[in-house]
Design a protein around this nucleic acid. Sequence first.
DNA 1: CAGGATCCAATGCGATACTG
DNA 2: CAGTATCGCATTGGATCCTG
Lengths: 116, 116
Amino acid sequence: MEAEGSLQQAVLPAPIGCRVREVLDRVGDKWSVYVICQLGESPRRFTQLRKEVDGISQRMLTVTLRGLERDGLIHRQVFPVVPPRVEYSLTPLGRTLLCTLAPVLDWAATLSVRMS
Amino acid sequence: MEAEGSLQQAVLPAPIGCRVREVLDRVGDKWSVYVICQLGESPRRFTQLRKEVDGISQRMLTVTLRGLERDGLIHRQVFPVVPPRVEYSLTPLGRTLLCTLAPVLDWAATLSVRMS
DNA sequence: CAGGATCCAATGCGATACTG
DNA sequence: CAGTATCGCATTGGATCCTG
């Protein structure tokens, strides 16, 4: 990689496009970012997430959580009790992603205001 | 909206998740970000983009460009000549998005290194 | 050159039913 | 409670052919 400096500029080296795609392939689906934002507040249980992430099906919550776990963005902790209790939380890596996403959130918010 | 302050924190208010989805719905498809990165370098013609954005079909390039244009992220300029000449470029809004995306690029790059 | 139109395959996702 | 398994629909995207 030849240019790692001023990423503040609007003009970026081309190969970076692929990099973005890597990220988008991870969190660019319908629910991942939504779930990450929820876990950003505090650890959550399965059913709790299902209520908070509006409209998500039980299947997709499972699929999404599995994917995020496999990518090392969230941690899954099982408590060996009955009834089962499973808590999901962001890993340090997941938190860095959430931080990284913040400017994008901000951009989206600004855009929403303009388009009202 | 109740919290518009410190977006630098890892903990973000929940409703923001929807905001991210708005953005992801716009540029979270397979090719948009890729095209935006290319146009970030300089204006491009259709065929030129098709060569640079590796693997994109002619149909998807058309669809992607139309979408970005409708969302006000890129500008389409037609030169009334034969053979036709059409140039695409980022709008100011598109450039702000590209800037916003920079940290995400950086994050992805770091991640790639770790996972090698 | 820069597309529009059409057809088809792959995937994403929701609904539903069942389980330790 | 926290899942797994199966089905079927809707969307996405690629290939191909055609045009001003």
